[in-house]
Design a protein around this nucleic acid. Structure first.
Lengths: 343, 343
DNA sequence: ATGAAAGCGCTAACAG
DNA sequence: CTGTTAGCGCTTTCAT
C-alpha cells in the first residue's frame, strides 16, 4: 500500500558520506551554525541533485508544529467575497511559509464540528474562521492552545477582524454632503435592527449614517426599509422614494445589489444617473465597476481582512503570545466613480 | 517550544488498561475484526471521554498517505468562478474524508514551482490544478506518483476536466432557432482564433455555434468581433450590429458580461428586451440572474468540474489505478430565463 | 483476542 | 564540527 516515497535525509547522508543529523543541520540549521560552510554546500548540492523535499509530516510529528493554518468558512460558494478573503489569507501565509488547509461548513452545527475535528486531526497551528455575513456564531470550544481568529464575524475565544462600519456609514453620507446633496433618500435600513446572530456590524453602519445626517442637521427625504439586499429591493425602493420625495437628488443604497436595482428602476423611468439622481452604496463588488455609470461605493475590505487575520495568527504563533480575544477593525475606503454628481 | 499536545493512543491505553496496538485496532480496525466488541466499545468510550482525535501527521508518516489533496489555482481572486470550483472540490473531498490544502499561483513560473514544492513537502496524495481560463499550461514534472488533474485547462501528465463547449455552442444557437429566430447577430468571436495557451476550448464553442447555423442554412445577420469579453465589447458590439442589421431579432453574446453591455446599449436606445431584441449568452455568472429581464444563458459548470476533478483523484487513489492522461468533458446546461422571446 | 516491538523521516540533546 | 541516540504518535507484523 505504502506509496513510493521520495528521497530522505538518509539518502543524502549516504550520498555525502555524512550522518543524517549533520545533513539535517546543514539543511535547516541557523546561519551562524556549527556545520562547516563547505559541508553545507556539499549537502545542499546533493539535496537538489536528488530532488529532496523535506517530509512535512515527519517534521511535524517531531517538532509539534505543522506550519499550516486552517481556514473554515461558511458558504464559500454563495459569496462573491470568499475568494478575496482566501486570497488575502494565502498571501500572508505563503509569505511566511505556511500552508493553508480549508474546509467549508454550512449552517448545520454538526458539519462545523466535523470541520473543526478535521483541522484538529491535522494539527494545524492556527485557525481562521471566515464568515460571509458578519454574524455572531458559536464555534466548538478550543481544545489545544492554537490561536484563533474570526474574520468578518464574532465568536467566543476568537480575536475578531471586522470591517469598520461606523466610519464608513459616516463617510458615505459625508461624500454626498460634500457634493452638495441635501435631499437624500435611504434604501435598505432593516425594518428592525438585526440581531447579532444575523449581523454584528450593520447596526454600526447605520449609526454612522444617522450620525452624519444628524450632525448636518438633516433628515432623509425618504426611506424605504428592507433586509434582503438584492436588486428587487432597489427597484421597489427607488419607486417608493421617488414617489415620496420627487425632488430628491441622491439615493444611498444599502449595498451594490440594491444600487443595481435602483439603476434599473431609474433607467426604466427614463431618469439619468447622476444627472437626475445620484446613487451611492456599499461593498464594491465587481458589479459596481460594470454598471453604467460606474458606481461610487464604499469598498468592503475582504482581501485585507483575510490578510490581517492570517497575519495576526502568524504573529501570535511566532511570538508565542496569546492572541487576545480583542477586535481589529479594517476601514472601508471610498471608491469614487461616476454615479454621484456635484451639485 | 513543542506545543502542548492532545491525548494520544497511549493515554487511552492507560485509561483502559489495554495496549496501544489494541486500542489502535479497536479505533480503526475493519468491522469484522479481531477485537472483542465489548473492548471496542470500551475503547471508544474512553476516546470520546478524553476528546481523542488521531494525529494525522503521525498516521501519515506511518502509512505514507496523508488523506489530503492539494489544489493549486491561478488567480483565485480574479475570478467569479473559483469559489464554485473550490466548493465542488471540497464537497467531494469531505465526503470521502480527505482534507484539502490550497495554494495560489500567478503567471510567474517561479511561484508555481514554490506551490508545487509546498504540496510535495506536505506529501499530498493527489493534486488538482485549477485554471480560470481554460488554457494550456506548463506544470512542473511529476516526481512522486501522485495522480493529477487539471480543471478547466490542459497540461502534460494531467487528466483534464473541461467544459464541453462544442455542444454548448450548438445548443445556444438551437435554442434561438427553436424560438423562431432567423436573423441573429453574434458578438465576441475572437478576431483570430486564440492560441491554446490562451484558450483551449473557446474554439470548440465557436465551432458548435457555426455548425448549428450552417446546418440551419443560416448565416449571422451581423457580427462584431472582439476577444476582451467585458461589458464595453457588448455596448460597442450592440451598436454596430444594430447598425449593420436593423432587422435582427436576437443577439448571441460571447458571455454574460458582454450580454450585460448589450443590455446597457439596447436600453440606452430605448429598445426592449426581449420584445425588440432577444439576448442570450454563456457563463451564468451571478450577474445573469440579476439582470432585468433575467438573462438566458448556458451555464459553465464550475462546481461540477471541481467535484469531478476531486472524484477522479480520489477514485484513482482508492483503486491504485493510474489516472490516464485523458479528458473528461462536462456539459453546459441551458438556463432558460427571460431574455429570449418566442417569435 | 490481545500485546510486544519495530519503524515511518525527522530533529534535538548530548557526546566526542 | 560531526556522529550517536532517542523518540514524536501511529500502524503493522508477529507472537502469545
Amino acid at each position: 500500500m505504502a506509496r513510493r516515497r521520495g528521497p530522505t535525509l538518509a539518502d543524502i547522508a549516504q550520498a555525502t558520506g555524512l550522518s543524517v543529523a549533520t545533513v539535517s543541520q546543514a539543511l535547516t540549521g541557523k546561519e551562524g551554525a556549527r556545520i562547516a560552510p563547505a559541508t553545507v554546500e556539499r549537502v545542499k548540492e546533493a539535496a537538489t541533485e536528488l530532488g529532496y523535499v523535506a517530509d512535512a509530516t515527519a517534521r511535524s510529528l517531531r517538532t509539534g508544529r505543522t506550519r499550516t493554518i486552517g481556514f473554515v468558512s461558511d458558504q464559500v460558494t454563495v459569496t462573491r467575497f470568499a475568494a478575496a478573503m482566501v486570497r488575502g489569507l494565502l498571501d500572508a501565509a505563503e509569505q511566511r511559509e505556511h500552508a493553508v488547509m480549508i474546509a467549508e461548513v454550512d449552517s448545520q452545527p454538526e458539519r462545523m464540528e466535523r470541520a473543526f475535528d478535521a483541522m484538529r486531526a491535522h494539527r494545524i497551528d492556527g485557525l481562521a474562521v471566515g464568515l460571509m455575513a458578519d454574524r455572531e456564531v458559536q464555534v466548538p470550544p478550543r481544545q489545544g492552545r492554537e490561536p484563533r481568529v474570526i474574520i468578518n464575524g464574532l465568536a467566543d475565544q476568537c480575536h475578531a477582524v471586522l470591517p469598520d462600519e461606523q466610519p464608513a456609514g459616516r463617510a458615505a453620507v459625508e461624500h454626498l454632503l460634500g457634493r452638495g446633496h441635501r435631499r437624500i433618500a435611504l434604501i435598505g435600513r432593516h425594518p428592525v435592527p438585526p440581531a447579532p446572530e444575523v449581523s454584528a456590524t450593520i447596526g454600526a453602519r447605520m449609526e454612522g449614517i444617522d450620525a452624519a445626517m444628524r450632525e448636518a442637521g438633516l433628515e432623509f427625504a425618504a426611506e424605504h426599509r428592507g433586509g434582503l439586499w438584492e436588486p428587487e429591493l432597489g427597484r421597489e425602493g427607488a419607486a417608493r422614494v421617488l414617489e415620496a420625495a420627487p425632488d430628491l437628488t441622491a439615493i444611498l443604497a444599502a449595498n451594490d445589489r440594491v444600487a443595481f436595482g435602483v439603476y434599473q428602476e431609474l433607467q426604466a423611468r427614463g431618469l439619468r444617473i447622476p444627472e437626475d439622481a445620484s446613487v451611492m452604496s456599499f461593498d464594491d463588488e465587481e458589479l459596481a465597476s460594470m454598471m453604467r455609470p460606474a458606481l461610487t461605493t464604499m469598498r468592503l475590505p475582504y482581501r485585507e481582512m483575510g490578510e490581517v487575520g492570517a497575519s495576526l495568527l502568524l504573529d501570535a504563533l511566532a511570538s508565542g503570545a496569546d492572541l487576545s480575544a480583542g477586535r481589529t477593525k479594517i476601514p472601508l475606503e471610498l471608491v469614487d466613480r461616476a454615479s454621484v454628481r456635484t451639485l
